[in-house]
């Protein structure tokens, strides 16, 4: 099985305050930590588990600057074989479609049975890349994949997609295909010290838009379906009444409220 895993580097904003920067179209990232997109981490694990079971090769691809190398090397340390980074100033401002075009250009000449991506990105949440990429490559796809089994002939897979309410939809899909992986499909491993040392020596092939045969008008903002015009802070209707004080005081106030409501 030859597999390709697309990974994105994203800021961790789940538990951090997010502030719009001076441009109004981006956020102040100076105090945020970065790491691999959560779904992508599960996608990496899925590819490596299949490689361990059936053999083959895992190629890691990421679009972005040199700062992405950290995320790429971590995937290599876990069991990835080689890596490509798509890096060009022309990629700036790409939406999911423009990203999918760059990925498709990099992938179309590679040999693959499965291309893995995350089902959606933690930052923009577009959920466009796996399905658009499959269409560009002309192969079948499934997204929100939370269960995967390669069938015995090695030419098809049984895929479980997670629907609303946790219902699973099972389908059979022909390889090669693109699968958008949902979190929870497996238990992502931590890289070993040995793996990290080995990954540090591996080459990351860097390709520009021109290397991929892409015109700058096809990628970045120019090649996107939509442009982010501006950010705003969501209007909140009625905010919660925030209880003031130190933990001792706020806990006491809350306990009192719960008592008054007849919940204690």
């Amino acid at each position: 099985m030859n597999m390709i895993v697309c990974v994105k580097r994203v800021p961790d904003t789940a538990e951090s305050e997010v502030h719009i920067d001076a441009s109004g179209r981006d956020i102040d990232k100076s105090r945020l930590s970065f790491g691999i997109n959560e779904c992508d981490n599960y996608a990496v694990e899925e590819a490596i588990q299949i490689k361990e079971k059936l053999g083959g090769k895992v190629t890691v691809i990421s679009l972005g600057g040199k700062e992405n190398d950290e995320v790429i090397r971590m995937a290599l340390a876990k069991g990835g074989d080689d890596a490509i980074r798509l890096d060009d100033p022309a990629f700036a401002g790409s939406d999911g479609f423009a990203v999918a075009k760059a990925l498709a250009a990099a992938i179309k000449d590679l040999e693959y049975d499965i291309v893995f991506t995350g089902a959606l990105a933690d930052d923009d949440g577009y959920a466009v890349v796996p399905v658009a990429l499959a269409e560009l490559l002309g192969v079948p796809h499934a997204t929100y994949v939370k269960d995967l089994e390669i069938l015995e002939d090695g030419k098809r897979a049984r895929v479980g997609r997670e629907l609303e309410g946790g219902l699973m939809e099972y389908l059979e899909i022909e390889l090669p295909c693109v699968l958008g992986i949902q979190t929870g499909i497996n238990e992502p491993r931590y890289a070993s010290f040995k793996g990290i040392k080995q990954a540090a020596k591996k080459e990351i092939v860097v390709k520009s838009a021109a290397d991929l045969g892409l015109d700058p008008s096809e990628v970045g903002e120019a090649g996107s379906w939509a442009i982010l015009e501006k950010f705003s802070v969501p209007e909140v209707g009625e905010m919660a009444e925030i209880l003031q004080g130190d933990p001792e005081e706020t806990a006491a106030k809350l306990a009192q409220i719960l008592k008054e409501k007849g919940l204690i």
């Binding site: 904003t13 789940a14 997010v18 719009i20 956020i27 933690d122 930052d123 923009d124 949440g125 996107s224 379906w225 939509a226 442009i227 982010l228 015009e229 501006k230 950010f231 705003s232 802070v233 969501p234």
Partner: peptide, 16 residues
């Protein structure tokens, strides 16, 4: 309008 960063910001989009 859509959301970014898990609903922390609204993004106003302009389509081609």
């Amino acid at each position: 309008t859509r959301q970014f960063y898990g609903g922390k910001l609204n993004a106003h989009m302009t389509l081609k």
